[in-house]
Each structure stands twice: as C-alpha cells, then as structure tokens.
Computed example of a mutant assay.
Amino acid sequence: MAANRSAGVSWTRSKHADVSAGFADIDWARPWLASIEARGRRWQTAALAGYDNYLATLNDDATAAAQVTGRGKPLAFIAQEALPSGASYEGHIAQTGCVPTRHNLHDFFNASMWFAYPRIKAALNARQAEQIDTLGIGPTRGGVRDALTLFDENAVFFACADASLGRALRGFGWRTLFVGERAAWGTRCEARIFGHALLEKLVAPYKACTGHAWIVDVPADYFSLDDAARRAFIDGCVSERLNAAPIDSRAFAPLPVLGVPGWWDANASPDFYDDVSVFRPGRRSRGC
C-alpha cells in the first residue's frame, strides 16, 4: 500500500481528474463486488463528480460508522498531498486515523475494505505500525511487513466448512476444487476478495488474475447466514488471528479467481481449467 506514498509524490487536482474516468468502468454486476455494491455505487457517483466531493462522501460514511484505525483513532480520509513530508503511510493512519486517499480505483477499493472488514483493516494497520515503530522505514519492508502488505493488497478469504476443500486448494487440486466439488461452492466453501489491488485488477478481468487465498475455517451453519453476517464472522475471526500472531507469505495459497464457479461464464466448461499456465500443477509440503 505504501508504494508511491512518499511526500515527494505530488498529486494535483488536474491529475485526479485524469484518472476519474476509471470509476465509470466499474461493473457492479460482477459477483465479487456484491458485498460492497450499495455503498460503492454512491461512492462511484461522488468520485465521478470530483475529488473533493468524493472525499466528503467517504468522510460522511466514516463519521456515521464511527470506525477506528489501528490505534483506536477515528477513521477519516484525507487527500494524498496532506500526508506530511517524511511520514509513513501506515504510521500516519495509526497515529491520526487519517487515510491518505488518491482519486483512483486502487484507493477506492482500499477505502471500501475499511467498511466491509473494519476489524481486519484496523488489525493490519496496527501490525504495520508496530513494525514501523520497531524497525523504522528502510529500503526493504522486512518479512512481516511484506506479508501484511500482501494480505492487504491481494488477499482472498476462502471460507471453508470442509477441510478436504482446503487441502485441495493448498495442493493445487484444481479439478477437485472447481469441477469435482463444484456443488460445494456456496454450501461448503466460498471466496471473498479482500485485497484492494486485486479488486482494482478485476475492473478489467483476465484469466490469469490470481489472489493469495487465506483459508478461514467456518462452521457449516455459516452458509445459512446472510452476507452481512458472513462478513462480520470473517471480520472477527481473521482480525483475531492477525492480532494473535505474526504472518508470513507462506501462509497463503494461490487462487486463480476467475476459476471460482459462478464468477466467470467460461468456467462453466471443465476445459477452462486445462490451462496449466493459470491452473498450475504443484504440491505444498506444509499447511497454511
């Protein structure tokens, strides 16, 4: 998330206007956007009206939701150029509650996740800030911050009530997961995209688009819950895991997201999964 966030990056109103056309390209019929559609449509309208209007809308929602960031500061959104010189992006959010936000799709989806999964976003911010406090800002992030950033940018929650499906995912068992167990999707497993960079990529979907799956064990009755209750469940249990122990990049399993049943028309044919450049063979020697 911190890429190009330094104070040396200058974002003028004209530059924001140049990128605003990307907001019009969001297709709310995409199934992976269903959880954020209602708020997202309002934000999209505001973003197309202009950067100031967009930030005002985000802040109205943040005030109404009374959400907080990693160190309990009230959540707010500020223009990117308001990030003080020399300040780190994650550290500034933790210390002030203010999220530097550009007028682009990447930050649009980042802000969306603050509302869809507020406890997870706060936990990630707290852990990132701890790392910055301990190690400072250097030429490299270090393993823990790399993993936290990977999670923030590209994570997909694989909610699973059947351990065999988690094993198929970890073991690159694509035919099992997507063809043989196709009926399990929506009843024993599902995917929910969290990573905002991944959501940005999926505005223009392509077959090789791959997320980093974080397996979330859920009870069978999870699948009888409505969308809001499912998100709340994941928000709670994943944030607890993030707060309890450090993570590293080996905790993830690759998931080609357009392979998820119901997410892409072409995957109705089993032949879709024969493309080994996307659905690669492999074997994991350890669990997540």
Score class of each variant (00 low, 15 high):
Ala3Met: 10
Ala7Thr: 14
Gly8Val: 06
Lys15Ala: 15
Ala17Met: 06
Trp28Met: 05
Pro31Val: 01
Ile36Gly: 01
Trp43Ser: 03
Ala49Cys: 00
Tyr51Met: 01
Asn53Arg: 10
Ala56Phe: 05
Thr57Leu: 14
Asp61His: 01
Ala65Ser: 12
Ala66Lys: 15
Gln67Ile: 10
Gly70Glu: 10
Gly70His: 07
Gln80Ser: 14
Tyr89Thr: 03
Tyr89Leu: 08
Gly97Cys: 12
Val99Arg: 08
Thr101Gln: 07
Arg102Pro: 00
Arg102Asn: 12
Leu105Asp: 04
Phe108Thr: 03
Asn110Thr: 01
Tyr117Ala: 14
Pro118Ile: 06
Ala123Asp: 02
Ala126Arg: 15
Asp133Gln: 14
Asp133Arg: 11
Thr134His: 11
Leu135Gln: 12
Gly138Met: 10
Gly142Asn: 02
Arg145Ser: 15
Asp146Ala: 06
Phe151Cys: 00
Glu153Thr: 04
Glu153Pro: 07
Asn154Gln: 13
Val156Met: 07
Phe158Lys: 02
Ala161His: 02
Asp162Met: 02
Ser164Asn: 09
Leu165Tyr: 09
Gly166Met: 04
Gly173Phe: 04
Trp174Pro: 03
Phe178Ser: 10
Glu181His: 12
Gly195Asn: 07
Ala197Arg: 04
Leu199Ala: 05
Lys201Val: 15
Leu202His: 05
Pro205Cys: 05
Tyr206Val: 14
Tyr206Cys: 08
Asp217Gln: 15
Phe223Tyr: 00
Ala228Met: 09
Phe233Glu: 09
Phe233Lys: 09
Val238Leu: 06
Ser239Tyr: 05
Ile247Gly: 08
Ala251Tyr: 13
Leu255Met: 12
Gly259His: 05
Pro261Leu: 04
Ala266Ser: 11
Asn267Glu: 12
Ala268Phe: 07
Ser269Lys: 12
Pro270Ile: 14
Ser277Cys: 02
Val278Ala: 05
Gly282Arg: 02
